Amino acid sequence: MALLQPPQSTFPLACATEVFGDHGPAIPARYAYDSLAPLLEWLAGRLDQSVSVAEMAVRSQVSARTLTRRFTEQLGISPGRWLLDRRIAATRALLEETDLPVETIARRGGLSSAVNLRRRFHEALRTTPAAYRRAFRVDEAG
Rank of each mutant, 00 (worst) to 15 (best):
A44G: 15
G45W: 11
G45V: 08
R46Y: 06
L47W: 08
D48S: 13
D48R: 12
Q49A: 03
Q49D: 01
S50R: 14
V51P: 00
S52L: 11
S52I: 13
S52P: 14
S52E: 07
V53F: 05
V53A: 08
V53Y: 03
V53K: 01
A54M: 09
A54L: 14
E55G: 03
E55D: 06
E55N: 06
E55I: 11
E55K: 08
E55H: 11
M56T: 05
M56Q: 11
M56C: 15
M56V: 05
M56W: 09
A57C: 14
A57K: 07
A57H: 11
A57G: 11
A57T: 11
A57W: 12
A57M: 12
A57S: 12
V58C: 12
V58R: 11
S60F: 06
Q61Y: 08
Q61K: 14
V62S: 01
V62P: 03
V62T: 10
V62R: 11
S63Y: 05
S63N: 04
S63F: 06
A64Q: 13
R65D: 12
R65M: 13
R65H: 11
T66L: 15
T66H: 15
L67C: 06
L67N: 04
L67Q: 05
T68E: 12
T68I: 04
T68M: 07
T68D: 09
R70G: 00
R70K: 15
R70T: 07
R70I: 04
F71G: 02
F71R: 06
T72G: 03
T72C: 06
Q74L: 13
L75Y: 05
L75W: 04
L75I: 06
L75R: 12
G76C: 00
G76N: 00
G76Y: 00
G76L: 00
I77A: 08
I77W: 08
S78P: 03
S78H: 11
S78L: 14
P79D: 02
P79R: 03
R81V: 06
W82R: 03
L83P: 01
L84Q: 15
L84K: 14
L84M: 15
D85R: 03
R86N: 07
R86L: 05
R86E: 08
R87V: 05
R87L: 06
R87T: 05
I88G: 00
I88D: 01
I88Q: 03
